[in-house]
Amino acid sequence: MADILLVLHTGSDGSFSKGALESIATTVDLSSKLGGSFAVGVIGAGAGAAADTIAGCGAEKFYVVEDEAVAAPRYSSDVKAATALIQKAGAQIVLAPGSSRFARCMPGAAYRAGAQIDTHIVALAVEAGVLKAQRWYYRQRILTTLSRAARPWVLLIEGGIQPAWQGAAGVADAESVAVEFTDAELRTTIKGIESPATDAQTIRPDAALLFVAGAGWTKKQADGAYHIRDASNLIQGFLKKAGASLGSSKSLVDLQSDGQETLSFMSHMNQVGQTGTTPRHAKGLSTCCHGEEPHAVGWRFINERRAINMDANCGWAQGKADVVYIANAFEVIAKVNELLG
């Protein structure tokens, strides 16, 4: 019996996401620190074939659930499949990537397996043989290191904390774990995935650069007039040319729900910060946004940060950004777009 079980799921194309591969690296790393073995369990369509693609990861055993019922993410079937894997493997430590699918079903699986669960883990360490996990509380305000004595212990790993595992494919020789699904567990039908109408303007985790637009874009400019259309063209032009992901401050999307004229392609989906998301990108460029703490906590995982703001005393200038340009974002972004061609 392995000491660690890593649970993965396949995507709709039957392959593993970047987050899944990263969690393999985390598992390999932890396993060597604990000096034990690990197994991998895979849920989803094509789980067996997918297991073969990571056959060289060092797992002592592979398990799969590839019933039709788990082809698409559904809580009731996912939770049952994940519980079955945890129970089958009998591992003390269960790791899984914190994907939307697992963030949804793993708490229930932990409950059914009589396990403890912690999520949004950003680091794992072993000190004097004790496994210690790091995670944020109060939305990236307070960083804690914690451990638990009780087992099994399920830990959902944040994306981006480790490079993706790379290794040889092979024959995983996965054991299929049989799971029976009752009608009561199939009351929910998956209809499919809907992309927002304006797919270019959403948060894209794979982009190297996050571009954040603040409420300043929709305020009166130096000439006393509003320039919503100009703002819109500049931002959309930039996103396209720089291949950037689009985020916004809360005040900008709040203006939207107040019915004020604003940037039509923005929604709460773009909101970064305390009540929004905490995306992970190598670089972030903030524009027309003051950089207050509730917004800046959403930048916790942005490595290089630059801001364009008219106020030399804005929050960004107080140690929250690496570089702050005191300038008119309309002028700067127009020129940037020109240079990007």
Binding site: H290, E292, E293, D311, N313, C314, G315, A317, Q318, G319
Partner: peptide, 12 residues
């Protein structure tokens, strides 16, 4: 930024 901050910062 700690004791002496801009007027906007002291607001927020």
């Amino acid at each position: 930024g700690e004791l002496l901050m801009s007027h906007q910062d002291v607001l927020f």
